[in-house]
Each structure stands twice: as C-alpha cells, then as structure tokens.
Design a protein around this nucleic acid. Sequence first.
DNA 1: GTTAATTATTGAACGTCGTTCACTATTTTG
DNA 2: CAAAATAGTGAACGACGTTCAATAATTAAC
Lengths: 210, 210
Amino acid sequence: MPESVNTNVDLPAEAGRRERKRLQQLDHLADTAWSLFEAEGFESVTMERIAAAADVSKVTLYRHFPVKEALLRHVFHRELGEAWPAIQPELARVAPGRERLARFLELQAAWCESRRTFLLPYVRYRLGDHRLTTEGRERSGMDRIFAALIAQGQATGEFRADLPTDLLAMHFQFAHLATMLRCLGDERLSLAAEFAGMLDLVCDGLGVRR
Amino acid sequence: MPESVNTNVDLPAEAGRRERKRLQQLDHLADTAWSLFEAEGFESVTMERIAAAADVSKVTLYRHFPVKEALLRHVFHRELGEAWPAIQPELARVAPGRERLARFLELQAAWCESRRTFLLPYVRYRLGDHRLTTEGRERSGMDRIFAALIAQGQATGEFRADLPTDLLAMHFQFAHLATMLRCLGDERLSLAAEFAGMLDLVCDGLGVRR
DNA sequence: GTTAATTATTGAACGTCGTTCACTATTTTG
DNA sequence: CAAAATAGTGAACGACGTTCAATAATTAAC
C-alpha cells in the first residue's frame, strides 16, 4: 500500500510582479545560455556572449547567476521539477527505503546519460558548493529528494535513525556525486551499474556483515 | 604483534640535476607562497605577487602550479611526508582495519585544526580534482594512505573484499572531504568527533545492522 | 666534444572572469 | 505621492590563466 512519497520539489508560491519578472528573467537567461552551450559547448561560451545573446548587461547576468555553472544548475533543477510528476508515481510502486532509492537512481542514470556532455562542470560545481554541507539553507532539488527517501527508510526501520537524516543525506549525496564524477571520467563505466554499486556500499558499509 | 604498516608515502628516487633543481624550485615557490598566505591570507595573495616574491616569471610559476590551490597541496603533502615517520609507529600500535583508521583520523583531526585557516580552499580544490576518481594516476598522499589502511582491513577480513580497494578508498576519501567541508563551515563542530561519526557511518553503512 | 633535442625561463600581450561604481528606471511600501 | 527597495546599465578595473617567440641550461647522440 504505497503511501504518498512527499518530497515537495518546489512550490512557486506566486508573489508580486517583481518576483514573477525575476523568475522569467532567470528562465530567459538559462534558456539563452543552454542553446549556446548546445551549439558550441559549455567551455567555449563566455558569460559576455550569454549576456549579449540574452540582450542583457553582463552585470545583470552576474546578478542572477554568479558563475556560469549556476546556469546549468538552473536548467537541470528545472528539468527535475518538470520530470518529478512522472517520477513520483514510479517511486511509489516500490517499497520505501533502499529499494525506492535504487529505483530513483535508475531513473537518474538514464537522465544523466542524456546530459552527459554538460554534467562534468555541473558536478564539479556542486562538489565545491558550500550548500552541500550547511544545514537549513536552500537545498538543491536532489538534496531534498535524497533526504526524503532516506527519511522514509528510517521510518520503516530499514535505515538507522541514530543519526540525523540530513547528515545521512549529505553523505549519500557526496557518494552520488563521486560516482558521477568517476563515470564521467571513464567512458567505459555504466552509470546505472555504478549507482547500484554505490547504493550497495553506502547501505551495507565498508565492514563485512556479521 | 603489529606488522609493518607499509604505506610508502613518497620516494624521491634521485634523478638527474634537472629533476633535482625542479624539486627545489617547487619547494622554493611553495615556501614563498606559504609565507605570503600566512601574512595576508590565502585569498588576498595573487599569483603575480607570489611570482614576484619568489623572483620568478608568472609563466614559470604557472608551469609548476597551474592554480593557486596547488601550492597549498604541495605544502600539505610535504608536511604529511615529514610527519609520516612519527605517524607510522603510532598506527602500528593498534589493530589494522577500522581501529587503525580511527587512530589515523584522530591524528589527522589535530593537524587539520592547526591548518584550519587554509583548509577550505584546499578541500574545495581537491573535491573538484579529477585525480580523486581516475585510477592509476598519481595519487595524493592521503589517497594512498587510505587505500593502504583499507587494504589492511580487507586482509584481516574486517572489511569487505568483494569490491576493489581503490573504489572503497575513493568513497572513503569523499566522505572524509565532505566531513572536513562540513566542519569548516560550522565552527561549533569538532573535527575529531565528526571524523569518528563519519567512520562509523562508512563502516556500518546506512542500513541497520541485522 | 661538438651537435642536436629537450626542457626551463622570460617578457609582453591577450581574452575572460567577476567586481565595483555611479546612475537611471521600475516596483513596492507607507 | 513620496520614500525605500530592487533591477538594470556602461565603463572601467584587477586578477586569472594562456599564448607566443625568443633565450638559456640540461641531457642525449654522434
């Protein structure tokens, strides 16, 4: 009896006109950047050209996206938000905890393959990001999802509850990013397989099971 | 009866005069940079000023250290090499595997505290580094030590041997760096305590022990 | 021991990054 | 409507990291 997955990715929460304009400005800038990235590659495109293509001052672009990688983050985060309605029922089909995490990673692996070209700068960016470790701050979509899925496993007693969910989620996310980094550096590795191995290692641990 | 710990940190392996000069050039540049960092902080010091202070062209500096963080890496790595003779017998006193890893992390925590100021840029740099995931390449001192300590645990049967040592070491190092990042962002956290928690989590895993 | 190939170093110039500043326009609040 | 907060602009700036042609030192080959 699969209850609600409950991982609220994002709620726009309609505010004033200024906020609305800001959000569509974010989308406009990210869309412009993305088409340039696809046409010429991430490295080749400069912030100045993105600003020019979006018909916006460089300062304005930097105000919204302090570094180029943040544009990738916006696109990816938005894609996740759009795909979420389809993912959620898929997750609800399997048992919470480890099995559900595994299912999510499978879906994620497929998406990653389709974005492989632009994933490396994004992963590097996320790894160096403070937000991965600081609690309470605005977290990425992925972060919230991992935390929710892990909390479900804790609720069923499958995962240990003697450590805070956020700490477990942080470690899981680092293992996740590490695995992505590993696969991106070696074409021969399959993300799906490496994700499965990672989940096994993170759940069972380094030590042998007694 | 503690056998040899066997984690060969570095062997100079005396080569020609050119290599010898190169190595002392590395030390000279790193020493110059380090004294500037201590006097004015890591962020404030530019590569140009380091080059000037070392009486060397900017191009020469960049040839040896492609980014500023690599200077930190050189200093830290050298410090580890110098401290290693004192660390090794200390590790040999306790059982291999988890206990020895714990002891190493304790010693490391103390060293980290003394370098806290300059640790953040270093950790970020290492996280984004490809070498953390690619196999076979020249690895950092820490990487080699973790791999050796884990291999010892595998040899005694305490750690699982169904996955390659290098993969376990990679995950351990990411958990290690993640924990450091976490502590550096929150003054209230004690590195020693968080390292202990990390080891517990990595060894026992996310799942509850049956 | 002279020659040839490799490697280290240099200065100058360049493009990009990301920031600063003073200024204008728009939206929001009271 | 006035005051305050928020977006946007252009120009300039310091720093990053790279490129280039040219010179000096080391190593290898004949």
